[in-house]
Design a protein around this nucleic acid. Structure first.
Length: 707
RNA sequence: GGACGAUUAGCUCAGUUGGUUAGAGCGUCUCGUUUACACCGAGAAGGUCGCAGGUUCGAAUCCUGCAUCGUCCACCA
């Protein structure tokens, strides 16, 4: 027996070495796979953000995708798993800004160009770390096709897509109320918000009625926005207020005269049944303003400070300062009826956690009606299926009421809009006009928009932009549409739906037919793992401690049917033990069979026990195929574990110890060969390590063995 | 406010279309060094299957209600 076939199995001595061998074999690259391979199987990786390092969710997802790719590779498919990373606009800009802050600098100190250099440096560093971590897990990606969402070629795809939409008239610019993050100083889409329950106050404010000298009381959580009020609204069915609809209220402090209107969106039962309307700073109010043709008073600016319109006393104050001052003034005027504690949900920026300020801003929007239709149809017609199926409901619900997508962002890191402006006439003249050019080659005198696109605009193109779009490449022909997408549920709407309509729109074909929504890994307390609470687990630490095979085992073992996982390390330990068990099974069989080691399919088996174990293995193999094809990886792994340990090792191997005939040795060798193949997609390293030590084998590596 | 999911052994979870003593991993206890493996083997303890009703010859499994936890969505200020 080889000197290196020692107990116990050492993942440290095998994993890195094996991975290097695989890489140099070229077999991760579909073009270099041996044999005729007519059918293709492709997956594009959900590109991790270049913000930091991989978390448990990435590790689980990588394991799932790798199982599929390795299985299909052994089944004779021309397999491509395309890796890459995402520039993750706001998120990455934030981490780099944080780093700068430690040096006492802001991005404005550096200026746009210098700052972007810094971000690229960051990207190079962390992008490499992330790809290195995927390798540690054993991901058999084709690294020669690695993509980044801001590669030059990728940028071409993005600008092509933008131009396409623009020509169709689906992209438009508009002054509309948007979610504004005062800290990042950018707009955000609806999906980039996180609502949090917060303790606040509900203030009841009396507005004098001009015609009667009476008062109407409104309830609000944001008194400072009253400076921008342009109406008071009540429900048309509300008997209490019927008489005063059409009359006018005098806005306290500013003494502006505003109409009292009736609108069915006002809830009679909430607060006083009367609500102040601030069209410039609230989404509902903005809609109401549209319906009733109300003026918009912007009292808060893009830095989160009060504007001139709010009045001289308030101009320049921060929102909370203004709030206090308004309350104070109202108390003086004796117009504050009461103040009660109130818990409500407040929108925060999903990247920097600041409170979102709805305000009116000039932004670019993508019309969603037609695109949403495409995305809905793809799923309703069964061209795209979700696993588990229940996620299609979430998907369809969102699409059915989706609003136009605000795609412009006022940050620096990202794809600059392919939009160019030229100012006609002088700055001051009233008839000045801005000419717009959209495309790659602007005429002279035009300057480019400083806005960048929402990260998800580029991510939406991932399944085809990575394969060469807009060029008609061979890769595109061969690997699009891809076969499966495996991803986390929290980006179902943010990403998956947008890829689907993009695929339909640009390629006339859905980008994948199956979507796996994998389990979410939670901390033991049943809540999301959080860095700040210290409840996060680093998959690299697990790999260091137990090995990649064991880590994959632990992940898949716990990921049953897409159910959330309350993470427990002990299953990784079980994986490590199992790897060792396999190793020892191999040592036993190889030393027992010696020169009679024979992996050929045994025929005409005489011994009853031999017959039974071979039947068991055939059944296991068929079952494993079924489970993998149904994306039921956890169950597949449980079954394999059960069979290998309980049936094969505990029973059959013990039985075989008393026998020394050719047939038994054949059965043992063949069984081992079959078992490491079946297990390879799940635990690639130890199975390959064993394969390399088989006395007889036909292929260079187990990864290209025939299933 | 709505939707979805979860609630089974000390811990993390399985339990297919309802059918005999409810399973696994880890942990615990007892015994064991027989030449694959102590990251092992043999065995054991441990569960009124969230609660309350109902359907049924029979329910962890189906129905109704409730409770707790979690996730997502949402324009009650």
């Amino acid at each position: 027996m080889n000197d290196d076939f020692l107990k116990p199995y050492s993942f440290k001595e095998n994993e890195d070495k094996i991975y290097k061998d695989w890489e140099s074999s070229g077999f991760f690259n579909p073009d270099k796979l041996p044999g005729k391979r007519e059918k293709t199987f492709s997956i594009v990786i959900p590109p991790p953000n270049v913000t930091g390092s991989l978390h448990m969710g990435h590790a689980l997802n990588a394991s799932i995708q790798d199982i599929l790719i390795r299985y299909k590779r052994m089944k004779g498919f021309k397999t491509l798993w395309l890796p890459g990373t995402d520039h993750a606009g706001i998120a990455t800009q934030n981490v780099v800004e944080k780093q700068l802050k430690k040096e006492g600098l802001s991005r404005h100190d550096l200026g746009r160009e210098k700052f972007l250099e810094k971000v690229w440096e960051w990207k190079e560093k962390y992008g490499d770390i992330i790809l290195g971590q995927l390798k540690k897990i054993g991901a058999s990606c084709d690294w020669s096709r690695t993509r980044f969402t801001m590669d030059k070629e990728y940028a071409k795809a993005v600008s092509e897509a933008f131009g396409h939409y623009y020509k169709k008239g689906w992209i438009y610019q508009g002054d509309r109320i948007v979610n504004w993050c005062p800290k990042d100083a950018t707009s955000l889409s609806d999906l980039e918000l996180e609502y949090k329950e917060e303790k606040g106050k509900l203030w009841h404010i009396k507005y004098p009625i001009k015609e009667s000298g009476d008062f109407i009381t409104v309830a609000t959580t944001r008194p400072e926005t009253m400076l921008g009020d342009s109406a008071v609204a009540v429900n048309p069915q509300d008997e209490r207020y019927k008489k005063i609809v059409g009359k006018h209220a005098i806005l306290p402090i500013l003494n502006r005269e505003i109409p009292i209107i009736a609108d069915r969106f006002v809830e009679k039962d909430f607060g006083t049944g009367a609500v102040k309307i601030t069209p410039a700073h609230d989404f509902v109010d903005a809609d109401m303003g549209e319906r009733h043709n109300l003026p918009k008073y912007q009292v808060i600016n893009e830095k989160g400070r009060m504007t001139e319109i709010a009045g001289k006393e308030f101009e320049g104050l921060k929102i909370l300062e203004a709030r206090e001052k308004v309350i104070e003034e109202l108390k003086k005027l004796n117009l504050l009826e009461k103040e009660e504690d109130y818990i409500h949900s407040v929108a925060h920026c999903y990247r920097c956690d600041s409170v979102i300020e709805p305000l009116i801003s000039k932004q670019w929007f993508l019309k969603m009606d037609k695109l949403a239709e495409l995305a809905i149809k793809a799923v309703e017609d069964g061209k795209v299926k979700f696993y588990p199926e229940r996620w299609s409901k979430i998907y369809l619900d969102w699409l059915s009421k989706v609003k136009d997508w605000c795609i412009s962002r006022q940050i620096w890191w990202g794809h600059q809009l392919p939009v160019y402006f030229k100012q006609e006439g002088t700055q001051d003249s009233k008839d000045k006009e801005v000419k717009i050019y959209v495309g790659e080659n602007p005429p002279e005198g035009y300057t480019r928009s400083t806005d960048v696109l929402d990260t998800w605009f580029s991510s939406a193109l991932w399944p085809f932009a990575t394969l060469g779009y807009p060029e008609k490449t061979n890769d595109l022909k061969e690997f699009y549409p891809t076969s499966v997408l495996s991803t986390a549920r929290d980006i179902l709407n943010l990403w998956v739906s947008r890829m689907i309509f993009s695929g339909e729109e640009f390629m006339n074909k859905e980008p994948f037919s199956d979507v796996i929504i994998h389990a979410t890994i939670l901390a033991k307390d049943g809540k999301r793992m959080s860095k700040s609470l210290g409840t996060g687990i680093d998959p690299m630490t697990l790999i260091e401690k137990y090995g990649a095979d064991a880590t994959r085992f632990g992940l898949i073992w716990q990921a049953m049917g897409g159910q959330d996982i309350r993470w427990a390390d002990e299953h990784v330990l079980a994986g490590q033990k199992f790897a060792n068990k396999l190793w020892n099974i191999s040592r036993f069989i190889i030393s027992k069979a010696e020169d009679d080691f024979n992996i050929s399919d045994p025929h005409q088996i005489k011994d009853e026990e031999n017959r039974k174990i071979i039947d068991g293995i055939k059944k296991l193999k068929a079952e494993t195929e079924n489970k993998i094809n149904g994306y039921d990886f956890g169950q597949a792994l449980h079954d394999i574990y059960e069979f290998v340990w309980r049936e094969f090792a505990d029973k059959y191997i013990e039985y075989s110890k008393n026998k020394d005939d050719q047939e038994t040795k054949n059965i043992l060798s063949y069984s081992l060969f079959e078992i490491i193949k079946i297990l390879h997609p799940f635990m690639p390293f130890v199975t390959e390590a064993i394969y390399q030590r088989l006395p007889k084998k036909e292929k260079e590596y187990l990864i290209v063995e025939e299933w």
